[in-house]
């Protein structure tokens, strides 16, 4: 299990590129090692958030497609 996220965000209804933009802005608000949790509805998030994590060097902790939305958790790595 991971620690409780430092931030919990709602990206429902947001389309490309805003989920990636908002998660990048959220990374600046937390300390290195802390996590941010977000819920989105854009199906593009399933591919885009892992790609963003690889390029930005942050860690994707969780990514799950749920019945009505997608939940993910990322950890600030640097």
């Amino acid at each position: 299990m991971t620690d409780k996220p430092a931030l919990s965000l709602d990206f429902k209804g947001l389309l490309c590129p805003m989920p990636v933009v908002k998660i990048a802005m959220a990374m600046k608000q937390v300390k290195v090692g802390q996590t941010v949790e977000a819920v989105a509805t854009d199906p593009g998030v399933m591919a885009d958030i892992p790609a963003w994590a690889r390029t930005s060097g942050n860690e994707l902790v969780e990514l799950e497609k749920r019945e009505k939305d997608i939940r993910f958790v990322v950890k600030r790595a640097k």
């Binding site: 590129p17 990636v20 933009v21 963003w52 930005s56």
Partner: peptide, 9 residues
């Protein structure tokens, strides 16, 4: 531009 800047470029 937003995507790249978000990824730290």
């Amino acid at each position: 531009a937003n995507g790249a800047a978000a990824a730290g470029m």
